[in-house]
Nucleic acid binder design. Structure first.
Lengths: 149, 149
DNA sequence: ATACCTGCAAATGCTTTGCGGATGG
DNA sequence: CCATCCGCAAAGCATTTGCAGGTAT
């Protein structure tokens, strides 16, 4: 656990004029403890409070911006008001999300896109792909059943 | 032009308790006049003003909700603050967007997803796909050239 | 006639900013 | 020591809501 924090911290250190502070370490810890979840700024705030050491909301927002910029975190907008963040792990590159329009559940999937998509787009449009976000809205297994009742 | 407005109007009419009003017709007209663009509520507001008959912002928001609900319009969030709307045409189903992170340009593409994706997801996840949004962030042709200078 | 709609003003909710004091390197 | 950071309070901005009067059917 602490290893991951330290790795991310080192990434942070690499950048100019970005300091390692207690607040930033604590945000990272919370993100790693919730690496399987999509977590909002508000939730990070509550968790920091629960741990006995509140981090101010503006500080969390500023930290998330940095973490997103250096690629430690992915920012998602699932259309429910607040942005959601996800700790980024290389193995999970190119995973995408199914969003249930009834219950709000989010399901992760992988291999939804063709492997040569980047290449094709570069050839056909001269566009260099950096980041791909596929969101599929619909109904999950449980909600389909409820709808059919 | 008016034909399309009338068609969409008829769709509106089909739904219970949804009335056809001047404001809603005018919003639809503006959308159709800009059917090749991604347009914000603020822009619809300005255009209505320019045409000499302002529509109040809350009315536009409420109208967009209805149009989105009945599928006349697609709502996009390109991450620049305000939602963007696009008049929906069936032939354009399953088109997606390349977003240049430098200049903000939006390029439309099609055939980016496999045809059997919905089916595969239904089989593998029991999830019923309704709407798919693929957004690809990166750099357009022009901005790649600028970066290389 | 009545249910729905509009526009205004005000509220909401997420996010950002300015600034004085605190802190990391 | 000095640039950067934190937390507070306040501002910003897109969007939503309550309500009184207006309109479609």
């Amino acid at each position: 656990m602490d290893l991951q924090v330290n790795n991310a911290i080192k990434e942070l250190m690499g950048k100019n004029d970005v300091r390692i502070t207690n607040q930033r370490k604590r945000v990272l810890e919370i993100l790693i403890e919730n690496k399987d979840k999509h977590i909002s700024v508000e939730e990070i705030y509550s968790l920091s409070k629960k741990k006995g050491n509140v981090i101010a909301l503006p500080t969390i927002y500023r930290t998330m911006d940095i973490l997103e910029r250096i690629g430690t975190v992915i920012k998602h907008d699932f259309g429910d008001g607040a942005a959601k963040y996800e700790f980024f792990m290389k193995e999970e590159e190119n995973h995408h999300h199914l969003i249930c329009e009834k219950c709000g559940k989010i399901i992760e999937i992988s291999n939804a896109l063709q492997d040569d998509l980047d290449e094709r787009i570069l050839n056909e449009n001269g566009f260099l792909c950096e980041k791909k976000q596929l969101k599929i809205y619909g109904y999950c297994k449980e909600c389909i059943n409820v709808l059919n009742e």
